[in-house]
Simulated assay, not measured.
Amino acid sequence: MEFCPTCGMLLKYELPHMTRPARFFCPTCPYFTQLAPKVKIKRKQRLVKKAVDPVITNDDLSNAPKTDQAHCPNCGHNKAAYIQFQTRSADEPMTINFRCEKCNHCWRED
Rank of each mutant, 00 (worst) to 15 (best):
Q45A: 08
R46K: 13
L47A: 04
K50E: 08
K50R: 15
D53C: 10
I56C: 11
T57V: 09
T57M: 14
T57G: 13
D60S: 08
D60Y: 08
L61I: 06
L61W: 08
L61P: 04
S62K: 15
N63T: 07
N63F: 08
A64V: 08
P65K: 11
K66V: 14
T67M: 03
T67Y: 13
T67H: 10
D68Q: 07
Q69Y: 11
Q69L: 12
H71F: 06
P73Y: 04
P73E: 05
P73A: 05
N74S: 15
N74R: 14
C75N: 11
N78V: 11
N78P: 08
K79Y: 06
A80P: 03
A80I: 12
Y82V: 06
Y82E: 01
Y82F: 14
Y82T: 01
I83D: 00
I83Y: 01
I83N: 03
Q86V: 02
Q86K: 01
T87S: 02
T87G: 08
T87H: 02
R88H: 02
R88D: 01
D91K: 10
E92N: 11
P93S: 07
M94C: 07
I96T: 03
I96K: 02
I96Y: 00
I96N: 00
F98G: 03
F98Q: 03
C100M: 04
C100Q: 00
E101W: 02
K102G: 01
C103W: 04
C103P: 01
